[in-house]
C-alpha cells in the first residue's frame, strides 16, 4: 500500500513537471536558449546515427576504380568549363545591372557570402519537415539564415546550436516564403503544406496571370531570403468559380528530401546609397 502511493506521487510529480515544461516551452521563447544547450546532449546520438552513411561514402571513394574516377574527373572538368563560361557572362551582367540600377536610383544590390554545410540528420517525426546540419553558431550561422541547395531554396535555420542547427524546410506546414513569378514579377507567398511535393499559393485572385510551368523565385520581401533564388515551379492552377482565390500548387525546385550538401547564404540587407561602388564586387 505504501509503495503504491509512493509510485502515484512520483507519477504526479513527473507528470506535472512535464506539463510545466511544455507550458514553459510553449509560452516563453526564452527557453530556446536552454534548449540549444541541452541539444548538445543528443548531438553525439545524431553524429553516431550519421556515421554509417559517412563511412559508406568514404569507403566508396576509397575503393572506387581508377577509370571511374578518371571519367568522373573528365566530366567535372567539362562541367567546370561550362560553368566558368556562365560566370564570365554573369560578371558582365552584374556590372551592367549595377549601372542600370544606378540609373534607376534603385536602393541596393545584395552582397552574398555562403557557408558550406552538410546534412547530418532528419527529424524523425514525419509531420515536421526539418533537417539537421553540421554547422552552428561557432561557424557563423545565425538564426533565420536562408539555406539553399544547388537547385533552389531549401528553408531557413530555425534552431541554432553551437555545432549543429536545424533547418525548417519550405515544405513544412509552419513555413511560408515570399515569392514572385519570374515571368511577370507577380508577388505572392508560398505556404508549406507538410508535403515534400508541393507548396500552395493561397492568395492569388482568379484573374491573376499565372500558368503551369511558371518559376517562382524568392522576392526578398520580409528581408529573410535573398532575392532571385528559385523556390518552386507551378504545377497546377485550378480556377474554381465557387472560390474567391485560384488554387495553385507549386513543386519545390530544391531537392528537399535528398540534398546532402547545403549552402547557408549570408545576406547583408544594408541600404546602400545610389552612387554605387563597383570596386568591392569581388568576382
Amino acid at each position: 500500500m505504501f509503495k503504491a502511493s509512493r509510485t502515484q506521487s512520483k507519477l504526479l510529480g513527473y507528470t506535472l513537471l512535464a506539463i510545466a515544461l511544455i507550458f514553459a516551452d510553449y509560452n516563453f521563447p526564452q527557453t530556446k536558449q536552454i534548449r540549444i544547450w541541452m541539444t548538445l546532449l543528443v548531438t553525439p546520438i545524431q553524429w553516431l546515427v550519421d556515421l554509417p552513411g559517412q563511412t559508406w561514402t568514404r569507403l566508396n571513394e576509397l575503393v572506387m576504380a581508377r577509370e571511374h574516377l578518371l571519367e568522373q574527373n573528365r566530366q567535372l572538368r567539362i562541367q567546370n568549363l561550362l560553368d566558368q563560361r556562365q560566370i564570365q557572362k554573369l560578371a558582365a551582367l552584374t556590372v551592367e545591372n549595377y549601372r542600370l540600377r544606378g540609373l534607376l536610383n534603385a536602393a541596393e544590390k545584395l552582397d552574398e557570402k555562403v557557408i558550406l554545410s552538410e546534412l547530418i540528420g532528419l527529424n524523425p517525426d514525419p509531420f515536421v519537415h526539418q533537417v539537421i546540419i553540421n554547422s552552428g553558431s561557432e561557424d557563423g550561422v545565425v538564426l533565420g539564415q536562408p539555406v539553399i541547395d544547388s537547385t533552389g531554396v531549401m528553408g531557413q535555420v530555425c534552431m541554432l546550436g553551437p555545432y549543429t542547427s536545424r533547418v525548417l524546410l519550405v515544405s513544412d506546414s509552419n513555413h511560408a516564403i515570399p515569392v514572385q513569378i519570374n515571368r511577370n514579377g507577380l508577388r505572392t507567398v508560398a505556404y508549406g503544406q507538410g508535403n515534400y511535393d508541393y507548396l500552395a499559393l493561397a492568395d492569388l485572385a482568379d484573374t491573376e496571370d499565372i500558368r503551369v510551368g511558371d518559376i517562382l523565385v524568392s522576392s526578398g520581401l520580409g528581408l529573410r531570403f535573398p532575392v532571385g533564388y528559385p523556390v518552386a515551379e507551378v504545377t497546377e492552377v485550378i480556377h474554381d468559380p465557387g472560390r474567391a482565390f485560384a488554387q495553385v500548387k507549386a513543386k519545390p525546385t530544391a531537392q528537399l528530401s535528398n540534398s546532402r550538401q547545403l549552402l547557408l547564404v549570408k545576406i547583408g540587407y544594408k541600404h546602400r546609397p545610389a552612387d554605387l561602388d563597383l570596386s568591392n564586387w569581388d568576382q
Partner: peptide
C-alpha cells in the same frame, strides 16, 4: 524531445 524538437516535456509526459 530534443531529438525530435517537439515541445520539451511532451515525450517525457
Amino acid at each position: 524531445d530534443l531529438l525530435q524538437s517537439s515541445y520539451l516535456g511532451l515525450n517525457a509526459l
